[in-house]
Design a binder for these strands. Structure first.
Ligand code: MN
Ligand code: MN
Ligand code: ZN
Ligand code: ZN
Lengths: 150, 150
DNA sequence: ATCTCATATTAGATATAATCTAAATGTTTC
DNA sequence: GAAACATTTAGATTATATCTAATATGAGAT
């Protein structure tokens, strides 16, 4: 990912380009795996400038507010994050819980009658099933939902 | 909601129909508002047999395992629950964060090519926008995402 | 290049949500 | 009614996220 373009998208959103913030943004752009704050913390600190937990959370909050990052809507304990690049849907594995991107396509909107006075902005999809790694092991025992390690 | 049918769905899933468990299930069936564990705790205890926090969580876990209840996939700190009655999609308000049901309809599946070897089970929709209460106030200031009280 | 100050980072404390523990209570089976 | 099993309970514990207020720093102004 182009370092200069990251700097520019940060500054274009009125955010200073600090090493810590840059690290979070760069990591999210390079990893479409929807990491948790803890995973981001560990990853960016494995390289250089040691960020604090608080800094990671602060930056995630700022990046979300700026519209560069979003928190992914999934069930489960900890928030997962996603650099907002190309629009896309999500696939969630019943067995291991991994979340993968699914190529964007327009989805038919609910009938006007069923929406009432609500103002609709977007329709996003959550596709569920078994991921490539879990599919072979059969459709049973989709219980544990334990995230297998990459 | 018919008390006897609740009892039956519990026992049909191999769960004993205790007052505490019944209370959780009945509350979820009567309130399509996707309450948190804390909200359920407070509500069922406002009536009679005082459940413990642990009991609420235990029963939610059991009900989810039994397939009678699901945890709703949304962003945010605490888990939200939903009695699995009729299939439906969800609407999430950008402004107040409220989650409402949207009448079910089949959604076109992703192209086979974009799914790869994944095994697809279901496609559910998250519709975003402004709820009936928030729509009049205009589309701006969709920032706070503070849940307004009912 | 240096100054300046709004912004950002930090360590640690605190808050909140969820789970665990082991003991007590309730229910079913024999 | 005793044994076996399921459920509830209070309280401790863990996990996740946020807050605080002291310090450091980046980027524009000079
Ligand atoms: Mn994604
Ligand atoms: Mn629902
Ligand atoms: Zn999987
Ligand atoms: Zn609203």
């Amino acid at each position: 990912m182009d370092p200069e373009s990251i700097r520019q998208s940060l500054e274009g959103s009125g955010l200073r380009c600090t090493p810590q913030r840059y690290g979070v943004m760069a990591f999210l752009m390079e990893h479409a795996g929807h990491p948790t704050a803890a995973e981001i913390f560990e990853a960016v600190n494995r390289l250089d400038p040691r960020s604090t937990r608080a800094t990671i959370y602060n930056n995630l909050r700022d990046l979300v507010q700026a519209g560069l990052v979003r928190e992914v809507a999934v069930e489960g304990r900890s928030a997962r994050f996603d650099a907002k690049g190309m629009r896309h849907h999500h696939f969630v594995c019943d067995r291991c819980g991994s979340i993968e991107d699914v190529e964007w396509y327009e989805v038919p909107r609910p009938a006007a009658g069923s929406l009432g006075k609500r103002v609709l902005r977007e329709c996003e999809l959550i596709v569920r099933g078994l991921c490539t790694r879990c599919a072979p092991r059969g459709t049973l025992s989709a219980k544990r939902r334990r995230r297998v390690d990459t």
